[in-house]
Amino acid sequence: MCRHEPACPTAHAADHDTAAALARHDDQGWVLLCNGVVLFDDTGELLPDGGVVAPHRPVPASAAA
C-alpha cells in the first residue's frame, strides 16, 4: 500500500502509527495512514484486518498516585 521511500511501517509493526497520513478528518476525529491504520482522537486504532487497538491515553501523574 505504501509507496514512500523508505516505506512506512506496516500495520502490525510496533511503530505503525508513525506512517504518513493519507486522509485527515479532524472534524470527525480520525486520520487514515498509508499502511491502512485508522487513528482516532481518543488514541484508539482500527487495523486494516479489522483488529482494534484500545485507546491508550497516558494516565496523568496526579491520577496514578
Rank of each mutant, 00 (worst) to 15 (best):
C2G: 13
C2R: 02
H4K: 12
E5C: 07
E5A: 11
P6T: 10
C8M: 08
C8H: 01
P9M: 07
T10I: 01
T10Y: 03
A11D: 00
H12S: 11
H12E: 08
H12Y: 12
A13Y: 02
D17V: 11
D17M: 07
T18P: 04
T18F: 07
A19H: 03
A19E: 01
A21S: 09
A21D: 09
A21F: 05
A23S: 08
R24I: 09
H25W: 06
D27K: 12
Q28C: 05
Q28W: 09
Q28H: 09
G29S: 08
G29F: 07
W30F: 15
W30I: 02
L32T: 02
L32S: 02
L32P: 01
L32M: 08
C34V: 13
C34P: 10
N35Y: 00
G36F: 05
V38L: 07
V38I: 14
F40I: 00
F40N: 13
D41K: 11
D42P: 05
D42T: 05
T43F: 03
G44L: 05
E45G: 00
L46V: 03
L47Q: 06
L47G: 00
P48H: 06
P48F: 07
P48Q: 07
D49F: 02
D49W: 01
G51L: 04
G51D: 05
V52M: 03
A54V: 08
H56M: 05
H56K: 11
H56N: 14
H56P: 02
P58W: 13
V59Q: 12
V59H: 06
P60A: 15
A61W: 08
A61E: 14
A61I: 09
S62C: 10
S62P: 01
S62T: 13
S62L: 13
S62N: 10
A63H: 12
A63R: 14
A64P: 04
A64N: 11
